[in-house]
Simulated scan of single mutants.
Amino acid sequence: MNKIIQFQDLGAKDYKSTWEYQEELFKGIVDLKIQNRREETEIPTPNYFLFVEHPHVYTLGKSGDFENLLLSEKQLEAKGATFYKINRGGDITYHGPGQIVGYPILDLENFFTDIHKYLRFLEEAIILTLAEYGIESGRSDGETGVWLSVGTPFARKICAMGVRASRWVTMHGFALNVNADLGYFDNIIPCGIRGKAVTSLQVELGVEKVDEEEVKSKIIKHLAELFACEFQFQ
């Protein structure tokens, strides 16, 4: 089992080209797994992890409801935003500047074959990262992602998650609001959940700006511990 994860920080990158790049890495792993099975070989499958920041974009998961986008095509253009219906789970979400997006493209057979455990580990990495900033967060029953003040009228989401998996290979991932403009969430029903707010690390800490590179390093540290893996920086 290969427990090395090749890490790339793509910086600011268009959503569509990043999605295509994910698909390319994903297909490479799946094709190798098929080849190993067909030829009875044991060539180790690679694992990847991407950090990226997208321009303003709304994405709708395969089971999502288009009605949860509250903007027309012209209004999208006026806000400088794009829209894509994509092949991950979950409903609608927003990505934009000031948000840390993480895409693990892993062969889970290198770690464990349990999608629920995988999602809980992604959530846990964010929960542990937020704890380092003195913020208590957790999970909300039946709602993937990381939340604050769960079970109270002030529940608010700080990190959204949506993944795709095939042959135990994953893609898509999580989006943590760090310095994001939360006004863009007013144009959707986030994750299809009415009546619940969103927040950011910046808002919760009450600071002008949070150091995003510091947040990224903390996320990587906790992922490495949880998955018992080594990140190889490119």
Results as ranks from 00 to 15, higher is better:
6 Q>Y: 10
11 G>N: 14
12 A>S: 12
13 K>S: 12
14 D>R: 00
15 Y>M: 02
16 K>V: 10
17 S>Q: 14
18 T>W: 09
20 E>H: 14
23 E>A: 11
25 L>K: 15
35 Q>D: 14
36 N>D: 11
37 R>D: 09
38 R>K: 15
39 E>I: 07
42 E>N: 14
43 I>V: 15
46 P>Q: 05
47 N>Q: 10
49 F>E: 02
52 V>Y: 01
60 L>Y: 03
72 S>G: 15
73 E>H: 05
73 E>L: 08
73 E>K: 13
75 Q>I: 04
78 A>F: 07
81 A>Q: 13
84 Y>I: 07
86 I>K: 02
91 D>H: 09
93 T>E: 08
94 Y>F: 15
97 P>V: 06
106 L>K: 00
111 F>Q: 09
116 H>Q: 13
117 K>A: 14
118 Y>L: 15
119 L>V: 15
123 E>K: 12
129 T>W: 05
134 G>V: 01
136 E>W: 01
145 G>H: 11
153 P>M: 10
159 C>F: 00
168 W>H: 13
176 L>N: 08
177 N>Y: 00
179 N>K: 10
179 N>G: 11
180 A>P: 00
189 I>R: 08
190 P>W: 03
191 C>P: 04
193 I>E: 05
198 V>C: 07
200 S>K: 00
205 L>F: 01
212 E>I: 02
213 E>I: 05
